[in-house]
């Protein structure tokens, strides 16, 4: 992790389809971009929610899957060499005295850029918090939604809930260092990789982990220190003693820190104009599902249009003296040179 700020023309927050296409439109104007995304790969909702699902309303593609669309966009923007920063969420944006912006992520990476484009879709993907009464009180130590440092779990009594890869991988990895590990899942079938399931079953067989079929109903503890969780099975309830809980129930989208950046919002969406898609803060733009204007449609194709118009205004900010000559990629030799057309 580098702590020296990265300087660039534009930082795009969100590497979904609109963020990716923004790289293309800005690239044609010689503007370089860094992209930051909370996920571990490009594609946003297309990659996380529906990689295999067909999309039928991308112009010129009668049918294309979320993953194919992502792959095609990645190919299309390759000539502009976008720099990606995954697994990070932008927490702060601050305007500097020289008019540029300073951004900081939750991984302490800093950026200094001339313009910011928010293409954050439905917000950042965050782990789902089980709706157990009082769970917030335990989030400062007892309840973890991811494992940042394995040592946090050393010698602890763990309760891991879920049946996917995260739940099983951490069951396997933390069993050797924890005092005890209990795995809870609502059914006897696991979504995780077969190899992990077999390893987990072996641990269960050897008595190295406990397994309960059921669902959490109540957290017990006091002063923010968890002491146990009630698990309801099909017939009976058991109280599992534990002081660390790792619930893995997938991801949901939350607006997150965007709400704190002082931008005008319209019901959790960022208000923009329809000429430049600029927010209430000069120099910060918002495109795609996260913005709002009269008549807004949350379609990928609308986001592509917004990216093109946004790029014109960003260009006016970054290259105020450059004469803008509108060109088509079909015929402009200079655009084709940028795209690497031979």
């Amino acid at each position: 992790m580098s702590n020296s700020p990265i300087e660039t023309d534009v930082v795009i927050i969100g590497a979904g389809p609109c963020g990716l296409f923004a790289v293309f439109e800005l690239g044609l104007l010689d503007i370089r971009c860094h992209l930051i995304d909370i996920l571990d790969r490009p594609g946003g909702q297309c990659a996380e929610l529906y990689p295999e699902k067909p999309i039928y309303d991308i112009p010129a593609y009668p049918i294309i899957s979320g993953q194919e669309l992502t792959d095609a966009l990645m190919e299309q923007i390759k000539p502009f060499d976008p720099q990606f920063h995954f697994n990070q969420r932008v927490d702060e944006i601050e305007k500097l005295e020289d008019g540029r912006f300073h951004l900081k992520t939750d991984d302490n990476q800093e950026f200094i850029c001339k313009n910011v484009v928010i293409a954050a879709g439905g917000g950042s993907f965050t782990p789902k918090r089980p709706p157990l009464p009082g769970i917030e009180e335990y989030e400062n130590g007892s309840v973890h939604y991811s494992v940042r440092r394995m040592s946090d779990f050393e010698g602890k009594d763990l309760l891991i809930v879920g049946g996917g890869d995260s739940a099983l991988d951490w069951t396997l990895n933390l069993t050797p260092i924890a005092n005890s590990v209990t795995l809870v899942h609502r059914r006897d079938k696991f979504r995780a990789a077969t190899d992990s399931v077999n390893k987990m079953l072996a641990l269960r067989e050897e008595g190295k982990i406990n397994f309960h079929l059921g669902q959490m109903t109540e957290i017990h503890g006091e002063n923010g220190e968890m002491t146990g969780v009630t698990i309801k099975g099909s017939e009976e309830e058991v109280l599992v003693k534990c002081n660390r809980l790792l619930p893995f129930f997938g991801l949901t989208m939350k607006l997150g820190p965007v709400a704190n950046w002082g931008l005008n919002l319209h019901e959790n969406l960022i208000s923009v104009d329809t000429e430049k898609f600029e927010t209430s803060a000069e120099g910060i733009f918002a495109i795609g599902d996260i913005n709002h204007y009269p008549g807004k449609l949350k379609l990928i194709l609308s986001g592509f249009h917004e990216a093109a118009l946004m790029a014109q205004k960003v260009n006016a900010y970054i290259n105020p003296d450059k004469k803008v000559v509108f060109q088509y990629t079909t015929s402009s030799s200079s655009l084709q040179k940028k795209l690497g057309v031979k």
């Binding site: 879920g162 996917g164 609502r186 669902q215 129930f249």
Partner: peptide, 11 residues
């Protein structure tokens, strides 16, 4: 769908 119900509560 059964897989996705793993992400629901009080199933």
């Amino acid at each position: 769908e059964e897989d996705m119900l793993d992400f629901a509560f009080d199933v």
